[in-house]
Design a protein around this nucleic acid. Structure first.
Lengths: 339, 339
DNA sequence: TTGTAAGCGTTATCAA
DNA sequence: TTGATAACGCTTACAA
C-alpha cells in the first residue's frame, strides 16, 4: 500500500463475480485459451474486463510458476553508446513479445555485477542478457544449470555453455589492420582499455598483433592499455615520439577510448590525419561529423538477436548452444587517408 | 518451469525446515525484524540461509502487497544521450536502495506509451518516472489517484498534480539567447523537433521569442520545426539565404537536432562558425570535440533526483508536490565567436 | 464448456 | 520470542 489512501486493484475475482463465472474461466480468457470458451461467455468476460478496466497481474502469474515476463539485461556501462544501442534493440524485441526489460549497470565492477544477478534472480527473470565482467562465472554456471536461459553479449566466458551474440572481432580487426597497412601506415598503435581478462579486449589485441605479424611489421610494443587521461596523454606522447619517421595511426579499441584519444589529440594541437591517423572500433554518431574511420558493429541487431535467442530457449528449444557472430562494417572516412 | 529439467528454487519453507523454525520466524529475519529474534535463532537462520544459498523472492513479497522493488522508467528515446544519462542516474540511485529499473522506450508514440504504462502497472511497480508524450494524461491521472507515485521528468503536464524534475528551460534559453546577442549575432534561427504540445519544446520556443523581443530583434519567422533530413536541409537554406547580410547563428533545440544540423551543414560545405554560428541545447560528449557551444543539463542528477523523490513518496511523505528545477550550464566553445 | 480446490513464496494477524 | 493460518492474484489438475 503505497501513498496514503488505499485503492485496491481490480482482480480476477472481481471480474469473475461481475461476469458470473469462475476465476478459472476468466483465467482461460486471459491466457488466450479461447477455444474452450462458449462464445457467449467469451463476450461477457470481454465486456466485463473492459468495464472494470481489469489488468491481469504479471506478478501473480509469475509467482504461480510460469513466467515473470521479465528479462534482465546486465551491461557494463549504460552510458556507452554501444550498450545503449544493444539496450534499444533488446527493448524493442521485448516489447514485441510482451516482455519487460530490467536494466542494470555494473561499471565493470564484479561485485556490483554479482549483486545485480542475485537481484534479478529474486525477481524471477525469465532470461538474462549479460555483458559480463567475467568474474562471476560460477554464479552464472549455477543459474544456467538451474535452467535460466542466458545469452552472453559482446564478451565470452571460456568453457561456459550458453548462447552468445557477438561480432567477429578477429576478422574485423584483421580487416581494419590490413586496410591501414594498405593505406601505407608503417606504425600502428592499438589503444585499449585495461584488458583484465575481458575476452573481447584480449581477442582484439591478439588479432591486431597477428595481423601485424602477418604483414611483417613490428608488433606488441605498440599496444597501450590505458584508462585515465594521464595514461592516454603519456601513451600518445610515447607513441608519437617513437615513430616520427613513419606514417602512423592510432587504432582505438572501442568508442570510449576513441573519444578520449580524439579529445587529447585536440588538446595537444596534434593534427589528424596529417600528424597521425585514427581508426576506431565502434561507430558513435559523432564519428561521421569528425570524419573518423570506424568499424561499425550492428549493435541494435545484437540486442534483438539476444532476446530472440532467449525466447527460443524459454520456449523449450533444445538445440546445442549457438554462437552468433554478426558482421562488422568498415566505415572509411577522412581520418585514414592514403599516405 | 523454463528450459527442460526443473530445479526448484530454495524457498522460505526450506529454510524454515532446515533451521527447525517456522516460516514466520524466517520471514522476520528477512525483513530485518531482528529485535524480536533470540540470538541463537538468529544465528541458526543466518547459517541455514547461507548454507542453502537462499534468496527471498521479491516476486512473492510483491504479491503479498508490500513492495515490488520495481520502478518503471518510460523515456521517449533510450538512444538519445539525454535519456541515457537520466537512465544512468536513476539506475544508480535505484541500486543504492535495492530497487530495480524497468526501462521502456516509447519513441514518442502515445500508443506505445500507453501500452508500457499498463504493462508496468501489471508488474506492480512501486513508482513511475516518465518523460511523457503528453497524450496519456487521463491514464496517468488515474494511476496517480490510485496512489502510484509518479515523477515527471523533462516534460510537464498542465494541471497534473505530481512531482516534477526538470531544468529551468526559460532561464536557460534566455541566457543563451542573450549571450548570442551580446556576441553580435543579428539573426538567430531556432531549430526544434515538431512541437506537438510537448511542454519542453513549447517553453523553449516561447522563451526564445521572448528573449528576441526583449532585445528588439525580429522574431518568430526564424523558428523552424523540423524532423527529416529534407526539412532540415530546406530550412537551413531558407534561413541562410534570408540572412546573408547579417552575422547569424543556429540555435538547436536539443541534441538530436543539433547532430542533424551539424551533419547537414558539413555535407553542404557550409563553414562553422565563419558562415553561421551554432549553439545547442544539451551537451553530448562530441560537442567538446567539434567545439560547439552548448547548454549542459545535469542529466545524471535529474535521474537521481527523480528516484529520490519517488522513494520519499513511497515512504509516505505527504508534502505538496514539488517541482524541482535544476540549473543549466552554458558551455562556451568555438562555434559562437564574437562577430 | 465450466468449476473446485490446491498451491506459488511471501507477509500479516492473532495467539501462545 | 515464536508459530499457525489466512491471505496476495493467479494457474492448473481434476471433476463435473
Amino acid at each position: 500500500m503505497r501513498g496514503k489512501g488505499t485503492t485496491k486493484r481490480v482482480t480476477i475475482t472481481d471480474v469473475a463475480k461481475a461476469a458470473g463465472v469462475s476465476k478459472t474461466t476468466v483465467s482461460r480468457f486471459i491466457s488466450g485459451d479461447i477455444e474452450s470458451l462458449a462464445e457467449d461467455t467469451f463476450k461477457r468476460i470481454a465486456r466485463t474486463i473492459e468495464a472494470l478496466n481489469y489488468r491481469p497481474s504479471k506478478l501473480a502469474r509469475g509467482l504461480k510458476g510460469r513466467r515473470s515476463y521479465l528479462i534482465g539485461v546486465v551491461l557494463a556501462d549504460i552510458t556507452n553508446p554501444y550498450s545503449t544501442a544493444i539496450l534499444r534493440g533488446a527493448e524493442d524485441a521485448c516489447h514485441k513479445h510482451g516482455y519487460n526489460l530490467l536494466a542494470c549497470n555494473t561499471d565493470n565492477n564484479p561485485e556490483k555485477e554479482r549483486n545485480y544477478i542475485l537481484m534479478l534472480q529474486s525477481h524471477h527473470i525469465d532470461g538474462l542478457i549479460i555483458n559480463t565482467t567475467g568474474q562471476n562465472n560460477t554464479l552464472l554456471q549455477t543459474l544456467s544449470a538451474e535452467n535460466l536461459p542466458i545469452v552472453l553479449v559482446d564478451r565470452e566466458i571460456p568453457d561456459f555453455n550458453a548462447d552468445m551474440v557477438t561480432v567477429n572481432n578477429r576478422q574485423a580487426i584483421a580487416q581494419a589492420t590490413q586496410f591501414l597497412i594498405h593505406r601505407g601506415y608503417k606504425r600502428i598503435a592499438y589503444f585499449t582499455q585495461p584488458i583484465r581478462g575481458i575476452s573481447t579486449r584480449t581477442e582484439r589485441v591478439q588479432a591486431f598483433s597477428a595481423a601485424l605479424n602477418e604483414a611483417g611489421l613490428a608488433t606488441n610494443q605498440d599496444v597501450y592499455e590505458v584508462d585515465s587521461e594521464e595514461q592516454i596523454r603519456s601513451s600518445i606522447q610515447r607513441f608519437l615520439s617513437s615513430s616520427e619517421e613513419h606514417p602512423r595511426v592510432i587504432f582505438a579499441g572501442n568508442a570510449v577510448i576513441l573519444l578520449k584519444v580524439v579529445l587529447e589529440l585536440q588538446r595537444q594541437g596534434i593534427h589528424v590525419p596529417r600528424e597521425v591517423g585514427i581508426l576506431g572500433f565502434d561507430n558513435p554518431d559523432w564519428a561521421e561529423i569528425v570524419q573518423i574511420t570506424t568499424l561499425a558493429q550492428p549493435t541494435y541487431l545484437i540486442g534483438v538477436q539476444a532476446v530472440e535467442q532467449l525466447l527460443k530457449r524459454m520456449n523449450g528449444e533444445e538445440e546445442p548452444y549457438q554462437h552468433i557472430a554478426l558482421p562488422v562494417e568498415l566505415m572509411v572516412r577522412g581520418s585514414t587517408p592514403n599516405v
